[in-house]
Design a protein around this nucleic acid. Structure first.
Length: 563
DNA sequence: AGCTCAACTTAGAATCGTAATG
DNA sequence: CATTACGATTCTAAGTTGAGCT
């Protein structure tokens, strides 16, 4: 039986199977029934034992409960790099002082005189103690967590029991922005039921707020998919409780995303031809649009919205590139018309690339940069809204990010075709798969910091390779002795090959994160078709969670699937 | 056209749990 | 059996998009 009966077998014969689908919803309507228990709130603050003290200017100082709680947030982070940063310290201290009693404010005036070390040690010990718990005690904790998950972790959506993605409110703490964030260290306040808006269906069992509390609001909006929301106090933006990726709602949306990208495949040649023509347009605006689109298409850059200065880290995408982010080289390393990109993108991840571009693009860039300061916008006549409006006019549903999805998926398909050798064993095929995946991750600039244990674990692996090599019997033994060892030889050679593959894969993966593209950019049907075609079990490619997320694709893709 | 904002997807780091190893 | 290593999972920040307003 199908995991996704509502999908029917529409990929094979949509007209016949429509009857399996649920009642078609009106435009914008996301559900007809939604019932849940509301968010699970972060545990209340437990005061420190009396023997764990905070010191000011060398002397112990008993803090009020609220002040102490915020002190523990800082204390817990003491050995993190964040606490060495001046902005972090200042933001923390400002916000902390705001929550102090007036007596405390009179005393605590200098963060440098605050000694959190005893509190820090208390939490380190506590976490050690947790790790050292007996099997039974750990089991008991696990059961308690499972019970909460069971009670709050699911909702009913249109008759199906669905897993919720994030059913807990975010606990209070100190804001940890990425990169050079001006708000790092600010106090993230505790979310109370009075901050929370509940969304559910009118006729469902309305969730009860915790004893003695009220919800901010209960609404019945079936045009949105969230179950609860609140406004976060750092950036003053909304946070939502939403469904898990394994849910039908998210799955269908995911499917739809890849179908849009597949439609782009049909018109991308036309679009490319058009932007080449537009490079010569007499309208500056059109030229900028055409060059930006070329970057988005060729380099898989993000759209690049404008950001409010001073509110977030200074990062850019395509439309928000500044003159200082590129350098033009008429010649470089034997190539012509080279553009050197160097900027911080999403999450302050550096994008560095040297690309040889078409002559017309190069000339246009020179033109766009003429008489500008380094801090001026490269595309001063363009923004994401203009670009996306244009893209929408070229194809229904087309926006800048569709190019990332399209180029990622088509690259995976092409690379799999080029790299897979049907003669290889499963390990060899998996290396090819990972390499194809890696080509996409590199295209999308999905980086990670080299794992702390990388060098060590690489050395361990190399040592293992050496050991295995030593055990391989040598043909210089007398020939019948050698023949007897043939079986062993074969086994060891296989093992050795596998280890070498592992080592290669590991090294190539040092600073590349494969997960993001796998989860968000690669049409899962490509991978599933590949698995089926080459006899690789799907579990080798997708773990349990991933198989749940991609259930829709596992259900529909056969080995002939073409993106 | 430009601005603001809600709603949603995408992202790497931190933490957790378990399998491999000694 | 204890420790380590690593994949899985959780967490929540940081993007994109388009609607609605002026």
């Amino acid at each position: 039986p199908s995991l996704f009966p509502w999908l029917g077998c529409s990929h094979r014969s949509s007209s016949i199977c429509l009857r399996w689908e649920e009642e078609k919803k009106e435009d914008g309507v996301k559900w007809t029934q939604l019932e849940h228990r509301g968010p699970y709130f972060a545990p209340v603050y437990e005061p420190l034992p009396d023997d764990v003290r905070f010191y000011y200017d060398g002397k112990p100082l008993k803090l009020s409960l609220a002040t102490e709680e915020i002190a523990t947030f800082y204390a817990k982070m003491l050995d993190h790099e964040y606490t060495t940063k001046e902005i972090f310290q200042n933001n923390f201290f400002n916000d902390w002082r705001k929550e102090m009693t007036s007596d405390e404010q009179k005393i605590i005036k200098d963060l440098d005189k605050c000694d959190f070390r005893e509190i820090h040690k208390y939490f380190v010990d506590k976490s050690e103690a947790r790790k050292a718990l007996s099997k039974e005690e750990k089991q008991k904790l696990k059961e308690e967590a499972d019970k909460i998950q069971e009670e709050y972790g699911y909702c009913i959506l249109d008759g199906h029991r669905e897993k919720i993605g994030n059913f807990k409110t975010e606990p209070p703490g100190l804001f940890r922005g990425r990169g050079d964030h001006p708000k790092m260290g600010m106090l993230k306040k505790r979310i109370m039921p009075e901050d929370v808006v509940i969304n559910c269906s009118k006729d469902s069992k309305i969730p009860e707020p915790p004893e003695g509390h009220k919800w901010k609001e209960v609404r019945f909006d079936n045009t949105v998919t969230w179950l609860a929301s609140w406004t976060e106090n750092i950036q003053n933006t909304l946070k939502y409780i939403m469904l898990n990726p394994s849910s039908k709602l998210k799955g269908e949306k995911d499917w739809q995303k890849y179908e849009v990208a597949r439609r782009l495949k049909d018109v991308v040649h036309k679009i490319r031809a058009q932007y080449r023509i537009d490079w010569k347009s007499k309208e500056m605006k059109k030229r900028q649009r055409a060059v930006a689109l070329y970057f988005i298409d060729k380099l898989a850059l993000r759209a690049g919205n404008e950001k409010e200065e001073g509110e977030t880290a200074d990062t850019v995408g395509c439309c928000s590139l500044r003159v200082e982010h590129i350098r033009l080289h008429p010649q470089l390393d034997g190539q012509e018309h080279v553009v050197e990109f160097d900027f911080l993108g999403k999450d302050s991840i550096r994008y560095y690339n040297k690309v040889s571009v078409e002559k017309m693009v190069f000339k246009n860039l020179q033109l766009f940069m003429k008489n500008k300061d380094p801090s001026d916008d490269l595309f001063d006549r363009l923004n994401t809204s203009i670009l996306n409006r244009h893209l929408q006019s070229l194809m229904d549903g087309l926006s800048a990010k569709v190019f990332r999805t399209y180029n990622a998926s088509i690259t995976l398909q092409e690379q799999l075709k080029a790299l897979t050798n049907s003669e290889d064993n499963v390990a060899g095929k998996l290396l090819s798969y990972n390499r194809a995946n890696r080509a996409v991750a590199i295209l999308c600039n999905h980086q990670r910091s080299t794992p702390k244990t990388f060098e060590k674990s690489m050395q361990n692996l190399q040592a293992k390779v050496r050991q295995t090599k030593l055990r391989v019997p040598r043909p210089d033994l007398t020939s019948d002795l050698f023949l007897k060892k043939k079986k062993l030889l074969k086994r060891l050679e296989e093992q050795l090959a596998k280890l070498n593959v592992q080592a290669t894969d590991k090294e190539e993966n040092k600073q590349i994160a494969l997960g993001t593209s796998k989860l968000n950019y690669l049409d899962p049907r490509i991978s599933i078709a590949w698995c089926k075609k080459f006899g690789v079990p799907i579990e080798k490619i997708y773990n349990k969670t991933q198989r749940e997320k991609f259930a829709w694709a596992i259900d529909m893709a056969d080995e002939d699937f073409e993106f």
